[in-house]
Amino acid sequence: MKSTFIMTWANQTFNSDFILLGIFDYSTTHIFLFSLILGIFTMAFMGNTAMVLLIYLDTQLHTPMYFLLSQLSLMDLMLICTTVPKMAFNYLSGSKSISVAGCATQIFFYTSLLGCECFLLAVMAYDRYIAICHPLRYPILMSPQICGLMTASSWILGSTDGVIDVVATFSFSYCGSREIAHFFCDFPSLLIISCNDTSTFEKVLFYCCVIMIVFPVAIIIASYTRVILAVIRMGSGEGRHKAFATCSSHLTVVGMYYGAALFIYMRPTSEHSPTQDKMVSVFYTILTPTLNPLIYSLRNKEVARAFMKALGKVKSEEQVA
Score class of each variant (00 low, 15 high):
2 K>H: 12
6 I>A: 13
6 I>R: 11
15 N>F: 04
16 S>K: 14
30 H>R: 00
36 L>K: 03
38 L>I: 13
42 T>L: 04
43 M>V: 08
47 G>I: 00
48 N>Y: 07
52 V>G: 06
57 L>R: 12
61 L>V: 06
68 L>W: 07
70 S>K: 05
77 L>I: 08
80 I>H: 02
82 T>V: 14
84 V>Y: 05
86 K>R: 12
97 S>A: 12
100 V>L: 04
100 V>N: 06
102 G>T: 00
103 C>W: 00
104 A>E: 03
105 T>L: 09
105 T>K: 04
108 F>D: 01
109 F>D: 02
110 Y>I: 13
114 L>A: 08
114 L>E: 04
120 L>E: 12
125 A>G: 07
137 R>V: 05
142 M>A: 08
151 T>F: 01
154 S>D: 08
154 S>P: 05
158 G>R: 00
163 V>I: 15
163 V>T: 14
170 F>V: 05
174 Y>M: 08
182 H>D: 12
183 F>N: 00
188 P>F: 02
188 P>N: 02
189 S>Y: 03
194 S>H: 01
195 C>K: 08
196 N>K: 06
200 T>M: 02
202 E>S: 03
204 V>H: 10
205 L>R: 15
210 V>K: 01
217 V>K: 06
221 I>F: 03
223 S>A: 06
226 R>G: 13
227 V>H: 04
227 V>N: 09
232 I>L: 10
232 I>R: 13
232 I>A: 11
236 S>A: 01
236 S>P: 00
236 S>F: 00
242 K>A: 15
242 K>T: 12
243 A>M: 02
272 H>W: 05
279 M>L: 10
281 S>D: 08
285 T>C: 07
286 I>C: 09
287 L>F: 15
290 T>M: 14
294 L>N: 13
297 S>A: 14
303 V>F: 10
311 L>R: 15
312 G>C: 06
320 V>G: 06
